[in-house]
């Protein structure tokens, strides 16, 4: 392993298309909100240094594409994550229904222990009119409680008005850091890229 003094934490942000993943991330990293973000294709990356409990850590945020078919990319993206943020839109019931989906997919693709791995569930866009609300706080909390023993924390936030965003990512950092010790092993476990390219080369040389 390289001798890095800094702690790097990888945080993956999941959720349906259009719930505001990129916005949340940008609000946190750049302190700005814009409606002009482009639709994320594949994944985008942002980093931010934060101090957690007197420790300087670099958060590496992986903003993923929300379209359903991009779930199949999970393996490439989820690898080595220390924490997973799943975002839904409080005004869109379907996006909330998908949360469990995303969670299962993540656990499946990373072979993580369901009880140990930290998830943050975020209901975004609470700035919208209350009448538009489709997912009540109560319902969301119920869902989190229903997953007994799982490591899930729920937030409601607004990327637009910067409500709860800092708190949210502070929690993310803390949970990720707690989880970090397992990361080294994790990284070592996941060496598919190496494996994949080896057989490739071997075979191609055979074919020649």
């Amino acid at each position: 392993m390289s001798a890095q003094k800094r702690v790097f934490l990888k945080v993956v942000i999941l959720g349906d298309s259009g719930v505001g993943k990129t916005c949340l991330m940008n609000q946190f990293v750049n302190q700005k909100f814009s409606r002009e973000y482009k639709a994320t294709i594949g994944a985008d990356f942002l980093t931010k240094d934060v101090v957690v409990d007197d420790k300087l850590v670099t958060l590496q945020l992986w903003d993923t594409a929300g379209q359903e078919r991009f779930q199949s990319l999970g393996m490439a993206f989820y690898r080595g994550a220390d924490c997973c943020v799943i975002v839904y839109n409080v005004n869109n019931s379907k996006s909330f229904d998908s949360v469990e989906n995303w969670r299962q997919e993540f656990l499946y693709q990373t072979s993580q222990d369901e009880c140990a791995f930290p998830f943050i569930i975020v209901g975004n866009q609470i700035d919208k009119d209350a009448s538009k609300r489709a997912v009540s706080l109560h319902r969301a909390l119920d869902y989190c409680k229903s997953k007994h023993g799982s490591n899930m924390i729920h937030f409601e936030a607004s990327a637009k008005e910067n409500t709860n965003v800092t708190d949210l990512f502070e929690t993310v950092s803390r949970l990720a850091l707690e989880n970090e010790s397992s990361r080294d092993d994790f990284v070592n476990d996941f060496s598919e890229p190496l494996l994949l390219s080896k057989p490739l080369n071997n075979t191609s040389s055979c074919n020649c």
């Binding site: 390289s2 294709i41 594949g42 994944a43 985008d44 990356f45 992986w62 990319l73 490439a76 993206f77 690898r79 080595g80 990284v187 890229p193 190496l194």
Partner: peptide, 18 residues
């Protein structure tokens, strides 16, 4: 890239799809 643990595919996927 390997040393730093970078997944090139995560980056290049966007290149290709767009």
């Amino acid at each position: 890239l390997e040393l730093l643990g970078v997944d090139l595919d995560a980056i290049s996927f966007h290149w290709f799809l767009s």
